[in-house]
Design a protein around this nucleic acid. Sequence first.
DNA 1: CGCGGCTTTGATGTTCATCAAGTAAAGTGG
DNA 2: CCACTTTACTTGATGAACATCAAAGCCGCG
Lengths: 249, 249
Amino acid sequence: MTFIINCNIFTPPKMGIRMSEKRNSTGCQICSFRVMLFNALEEDELYKLNACREQFLIRRGEVICREGEPIESIIYVNQGLIKLHKRVSETRSQIISIARPHDFVGLLSVFSKTKYYYSITAIEDSSVCFISKECILNEIRSNGRFALDIITRMSRITDDVLESKFALSSKNLRGRIAHILLDFADNIYNSNEFRLPVSRREIAELIDMRTENVIRIMSEFRKDRLIRINGHTVEIMNPEMLRKISSAG
Amino acid sequence: MTFIINCNIFTPPKMGIRMSEKRNSTGCQICSFRVMLFNALEEDELYKLNACREQFLIRRGEVICREGEPIESIIYVNQGLIKLHKRVSETRSQIISIARPHDFVGLLSVFSKTKYYYSITAIEDSSVCFISKECILNEIRSNGRFALDIITRMSRITDDVLESKFALSSKNLRGRIAHILLDFADNIYNSNEFRLPVSRREIAELIDMRTENVIRIMSEFRKDRLIRINGHTVEIMNPEMLRKISSAG
DNA sequence: CGCGGCTTTGATGTTCATCAAGTAAAGTGG
DNA sequence: CCACTTTACTTGATGAACATCAAAGCCGCG
């Protein structure tokens, strides 16, 4: 394994530290994700890329960047989970999306914006690479295949985000909860039993409903024996039924 | 003027004709929009691009392509208005977005999808160019500046769509109507008086509400002397108040 | 221990979708 | 061109879905 972070090096979260630790992993050339990542790049180009990259460990709860700060890099998620969120009023936030390993954060904004319009926070201990904007721009200009890679990836991200938002907006509350639970199980944890990385309130912010209703409906699902809940641990007992509820929504 | 369609050549809409007329305008090299469009291309490259381009006139109501059809081109809107829409059930559709002059349609999907997941229909008499996918791909591969142009444009489109969807989803119905009216006035017609190019029902599909409520709220606005309505003609009388309602939403 | 944040449940109110029914406008066929 | 049909528009009444408010238990943390 090339990634140090795959070992159990995390210490318990400690607040107040803005950016946990800078790590030098062994580099992009032998990054285990390389095949999904920059396969258009030759050895020497990867070497260049590696030079404008910084890897960090971020602890759960730490803010990676804030709304309004300049975008200087794109962020590649190696490990963990990261939320993109935005204040919409004094008392309320919205979660725009949750990024997981292999995702780029900021890929959509970096070329058209100079400032983030969302904040970025780790919701699990995470490992990320910052890759400088300039570096990416240069590479796009000089390497057509790389450009096409980036474009394809942007395109997929957009489609995913839009489709999931459209799907959600047409569902009722029960459908949304069913959808999000299945999403965690199927796409993030690949298991019917997992620890919810987010609070009830954050779920509400993610799928546009109120905390109370998240709780209410999850309790309903528990009573109906569709799921088991123990604090933040969730086990999906009847995925078929949840799927029905989600698509009926 | 380089564009034939700027003259009044449109005949009244006639249903049943799938694709109105093919037109050879004078070409990309002297297209009046060139400056906004492909300014990364040299003369000879524009010449190539021009060769894989077809220009069409589309009449109001005509379907340009349907959900599920293969994506073979991107569509550039020269003139008119075009809606991207999707069936969500037997009886209901959603409008994903409305494209206007200078917009590319399909730019977001062409690189990650092989089929359209939406249909495209003209809501005003329009002039569009189809530019073949292969042509664009080749150009991206061989011209880094062009690639960057495309990327920047994709990025802007995405941001716009996402931001407007987010804005809408957090507004109440009055806020949404106010928002969409201002959008037409400010961003499409640049005038406080305009002819709504869409039916009440289409407005509903665009901002996710019911036809009856679109009507009800527009009538409210009329009674409150915020707008004047005469059929499809709308005049915004009190834009400041509408802006308040939109952002309060 | 006590404070603040997260969770939970119940009661209440608002917003909005749905249903129904009628009018106006626009397309269609004789 | 007129009668007919369909589609768009409009208003009111009703009910369901969901937000909001209130109150209390729980838990971690200083």
